[in-house]
Design a protein around this nucleic acid. Structure first.
Length: 355
DNA sequence: GCGTTTGTAGTTTTCTCGTA
DNA sequence: TACGAGAAAACTACAAACGC
């Protein structure tokens, strides 16, 4: 009969037996305790090598009360920006001896609370939260039960007693709106993500504020789930006769395919019929013809900052809030609206006639 | 039979005390 | 000073014992 039992891995006891020393001596050698002779050190290290001994991290965390792991609740890992942030944070934490347990909420708010509960059971030493929704009741309950260092990623409230790393969305979205206004656009539409999260509120506020400041009509704002369908339907509505937008700002790289689908269905061309700005310098924006103007942010720096924030809290540091910039990157997808172009063509003709 | 309580195993680290 | 021996602690799953 086959023996299906797994081979037993070497424990600290095996090392002690092989080196003919006490378990406590092995512990002292491995822990670099000063009261260890050079001979003892050599004997123990040779036994460690011979046994192939690897410290049992589960047992270590049991004894020390720390798991050397950080939980990362991600709203939707399929978002390229989020995977870049998670990757940068993971590298930073790994360099500091921590492993990352990633829990993906798949864009479903009810899964945020479940994931926090799951990571709490795993006794993670800290939590990075990129929540799908900030004010879900089960989420608040789970969060209250998790009394360990927590960093919120670009989210407001919802989780008191946590550090926050934010993006200054007003900066980039304000610059983008001004750029469209400078080109002559008066009817600007914002295709936004879900209502219940900070970035939607901040972006909407910024676009509205700039329009109001420049005396433009209030922008058309459509919020909804981060889904292709929402991008498509919101674009069709924004471009309808009723709203007649001449410029669109797409507030998520994941809404962009839906926005472009609607533009193609309506047989419109960028930038002749419509100016388009999107969020994050994703491949689709860069390689679109013409290349799309973008509102950018540094995902790598953001990931590193979130990791640093949670490490600081674990070390006993105070809660803090760090805000990173966003900026507008103009490309060929923005041009003056059609009427504006005709007007400027007429005026240049008049000027040439007059001269 | 069911639910509750208690004991044990598993591994490592850290500490105290004793010995040479 | 260097080391050994042993206890305690951490947490959970599982088994056994117990009472109703």
């Amino acid at each position: 009969m086959k023996d299906h039992s797994k081979p037993r891995t070497a424990s600290i006891k095996d090392v002690a037996e092989m080196a003919a020393v006490a378990v406590s001596s092995v512990s002292r050698v491995l822990g670099n305790h000063p009261d260890v002779s050079p001979e003892m050190r050599v004997r123990v290290l040779q036994a460690v090598q011979a046994c192939g001994y690897q410290p049992n991290s589960v047992a270590q965390s049991l004894r020390r009360g720390v798991s050397m792991s950080i939980g990362f609740v991600v709203g939707d890992i399929s978002n390229p920006l989020m995977s870049a942030i998670a990757s940068a944070a993971e590298s930073r934490l790994a360099n500091n001896g921590y492993s990352v347990l990633l829990a993906n909420s798949q864009g479903r708010p009810e899964r945020d609370a479940l994931n926090i509960a799951l990571l709490r059971q795993r006794h993670v030493d800290g939590l990075l939260l990129s929540l799908t929704d900030e004010k879900e009741a089960p989420l608040l309950k789970e969060f209250a039960a998790f009394a360990k260092p927590t960093v919120l990623l670009d989210r407001d409230g919802g989780a008191p007693g946590s550090s926050r790393v934010l993006f200054d969305h007003a900066q980039g979205f304000g610059q983008a709106t001004r750029h469209l206004a400078d080109l002559g656009h008066r009817r600007i539409a914002l295709i936004a993500g879900p209502k219940g999260v900070r970035h939607t509120r901040e972006r909407t506020r910024a676009v509205r504020a700039v329009c109001s400041e420049l005396g433009l009509p209030a922008p058309f704002v459509k919020t909804g789930p981060i889904e292709r369908r929402h991008g498509r339907e919101a674009t069709i509505t924004a471009l309808s006769e009723q709203h007649g937008a001449t410029a669109l700002i797409c507030a998520s790289n994941q809404l962009l395919p839906g926005v472009l689908t609607a533009i193609r269905e309506l047989d419109l061309s960028i930038p002749d019929d419509l100016s388009l700005i999107t969020t994050d310098d994703v491949a689709l924006a860069e390689f679109h013809s013409p290349p799309l103007s973008t509102i950018n942010r540094d995902a790598n720096a953001f990931g590193i900052q979130t990791a640093d924030s949670v490490l600081r809290l674990i070390d006993g540091g105070d809660l803090d809030t760090v805000t990173l910039p966003t900026w507008f990157n103009p490309r060929q997808s923005c041009a003056p609206p059609k009427q504006e172009r005709r007007r400027s063509q007429h005026s240049s003709k008049r000027e040439s006639k007059g001269s």
